[in-house]
């Protein structure tokens, strides 16, 4: 399998339940965790693709870091800081196609909201295409344009608006809100398929 089979221009595509090692990623930049043992600064690390200070500082802002980040030593960066560095590398290197591998696994919910907005911006305004290996329905919701779900017999395709879908939950973890609404439904209390807690709260308040 090739990543190019899934890349769609100016779209965010999710690949779920895939074995990353079985997908060949060429002509793209892959953002995934890996350790770096270079005793050099972030600025020096990125100098191979960009030495323009303004562009370097702008790329720091894009990943929610200030310009001090450029002076940090690469081998001392945390896991999440390394992911941000690789994301900066992808942006500065002007790669059209970016692949994110399990990006959602490393950040808390609030941090992920920031990245959701960033990824959408990269695709809508900066002419990028993104493919993400992701099994987190919550993260993919309101973000991806399409999702491909790998199963033993075939690969299913879902529209990004249709991710709260029973077919998907056979293979991926159900979002907790869906799980709770389903539980209530199985006990005689039927609620709509809310995706926001506020809406569910109002509905429970009306019902109780």
């Amino acid at each position: 399998m090739e990543i190019s089979d899934f890349v769609k221009k100016n779209k965010i595509i999710a690949l779920s339940n895939f074995n990353v090692s079985e997908v060949n990623a060429v002509d793209c930049f892959v953002v995934r965790t890996r350790t770096l043992s270079d005793n050099i600064s972030v600025r020096e690390y990125l100098s191979k693709i960009c030495s323009n200070d303004k562009r370097l500082e702008d790329s720091c802002k894009m990943v929610n870091e200030n310009s001090d980040f450029l002076n940090r030593i690469v081998m001392h960066l945390s896991t999440t800081e390394l992911l941000k560095l690789f994301l900066m590398e992808a942006l500065l290197g002007k790669y059209k196609n970016i692949v994110l591998v399990n990006f959602d696994m490393y950040f808390m919910e609030k941090e992920l909201l920031f990245f959701k907005k960033l990824f959408r911006k990269l695709v809508d305004k900066y002419d990028k295409s993104i493919v993400m290996f992701c099994d987190n329905v919550n993260f993919m919701f309101d973000l991806v344009d399409e999702m491909y779900l790998n199963t033993a017999d075939r690969i299913y395709e879902f529209d990004g608006k249709d991710l709260y879908n029973k077919k998907i939950y056979k293979y991926l973890d159900k979002p907790k809100i869906v799980d709770f609404i389903e539980y209530l439904g199985n006990n005689g209390k039927v609620f709509d398929n809310y995706t926001e807690m506020k809406e569910l709260l109002k509905a429970i308040y009306r019902e109780v």
Binding site: E109, E111, K176, F180, M197, L201, I204, V208
Partner: peptide, 20 residues
Amino acid sequence: LGIGLPFIIDLSIQLKLYGL
């Protein structure tokens, strides 16, 4: 601290505020 709450805990806290 930028830490969310587990869904059921968060829901309970909100429901408690409503007095439910």
